[in-house]
Design a protein around this nucleic acid. Structure first.
Lengths: 145, 145
DNA sequence: GATATTATGGATGAAATCGACTGGAGTATT
DNA sequence: AATACTCCAGTCGATTTCATCCATAATATC
């Protein structure tokens, strides 16, 4: 992991669909060299996957919410989150509550359905997202490296 | 937006670095047709960007946390979240608190520094992430479409 | 049935990939 | 300390694969 690798990572977080030639120009290498470095970053698991970021509101998903949960049975709740298509993230947390779950759904109606479904597993506290001033910032190197 | 577009979206959320030929085989179209559909999805803003998902723990970022904030001055706090490199998401929320912010940082020490920095803007409540059973599920069509 | 939209096929240009080669850093040998 | 050896990362050039463009065909719409 040198600063060229960081430069590659930053670039790919911003745009994963760019040619190795473009990427090479930005980081000062030829395309085979960049390809080799990217391959190593993938093998090391530094790059986990390449994905497309979509706009939920253009796909009839107009409500995003975070749900804080205190489930009675953690295993069953985790299973539930994996099966629910509207749940896009689920984090086990320390502090107040045990889980923080992100839901992207059609409307407040479907959100209510979702919350009702949650009630079987515990006590949900719902935080509806109004806007997202910071959506997906790239991970950058810490100052000392 | 027909089911072929949805199929394309699902595929690209899973892997944005695949050739239009591969994608075409999966959705039953030739590569120029797929390219045209992808171009339209991009133009419509359905696809916002293509990114690489990285593993923070392999980049010396071993602590992830969500911070619930009740800032005194919202504008100043939003500005702060945009400038802080460790903040990767920030959502304005309804319900308890006004903001939910995601932080990816080196250690509990740097998290503490971050929390101290937050104190200038309001009262932070920190939820440290222990694990993420669901990391980044793809957005899929609602049942009625 | 006319028209607009979307898909296909083939040709062209660009990018990815592979192998051979080069240069430099580090290490061992004398 | 100088020389030679090894290893690693990069470059270059050739080949294969892919993206793009355009003309044409198929499909859907009214």
């Amino acid at each position: 992991m040198d600063e060229i690798d960081w430069s590659i990572l930053t670039q790919l977080q911003e745009n994963s669909r760019q040619t190795m030639i473009e990427l090479g120009k930005k980081v000062g290498l030829t395309s085979p060299s960049v390809t080799e470095r990217v391959r190593r970053l993938e093998d090391q698991g530094v790059i986990k996957k390449y994905g497309a970021l979509v706009a939920p509101e253009k796909l009839n998903k107009r409500v995003t919410a975070f749900i804080l949960m205190e489930p009675k049975d953690c295993m069953k709740y985790v299973q539930f989150t994996k099966e629910q298509p509207d749940i896009v993230e689920c984090h086990r947390i320390a502090g107040m509550y045990s889980y923080l779950t992100k839901v992207v759904t059609e409307s407040v109606h479907t959100l209510e359905d979702h919350i009702n479904a949650c009630l079987e597993y515990g006590k949900p506290t719902t935080l509806i997202v109004l806007s997202s001033p910071v959506e997906q910032k790239a991970i950058t190197p810490s100052v000392n490296e």
